[in-house]
Amino acid sequence: MGLFSSILKLSRRRSPWVYVLNAGSCNGCDIEIGSLLSPRYDMEQIGALRQGSPKHADILLITGPLTLRSADAVRSIYAQIPEPKAVVAVGSCPATGNVFAGSPTVEDGVLHVVPVDVFVPGCPPRPQAILAGVQEAAHLLAEGKTGRWHKEKHHE
């Protein structure tokens, strides 16, 4: 492995930049991600920074069960993140739809639209768990093992 690629690998693991995307969440998960920026949990200790633009991000944090109106935005924002990229699904909503499953305006999880690398279960998960999820995603990025779970959309 060349020097350049080992530096690249190290920096992917040590400074993952994240972009937070609300795909119809109840806010619960979002405020716990907000707490991650606070002095107690301090996401920056693992080098993670929250970014305002998906074009600067390595890791996409998705919350919410994917409402119909947010589906296109999720697709487009995922496409804007440069490769390699990892997706962390925060909370039970993006995994299954959670309590909103079965609603006609909800897609029951984000797997139809984007591949997910790390699921962080909980409604909402504790900030420590989200932090661990971000760290795991950073490791996957460094190892080049992203895109673990993907489901093709069956109907249509």
Partner: peptide
């Protein structure tokens, strides 16, 4: 309208015990 999850509709399909869990998730704050 970007986070419309149809909670009112779902609430009419579930019983009171389940609805308590559901309406709690109208807003996490």
């Amino acid at each position: 309208g970007f986070v419309h999850r149809g909670i009112e509709l779902l609430a009419q399909r579930r019983n009171y015990i389940q609805d308590l869990v559901l309406v709690e998730r109208v807003c996490g704050i």
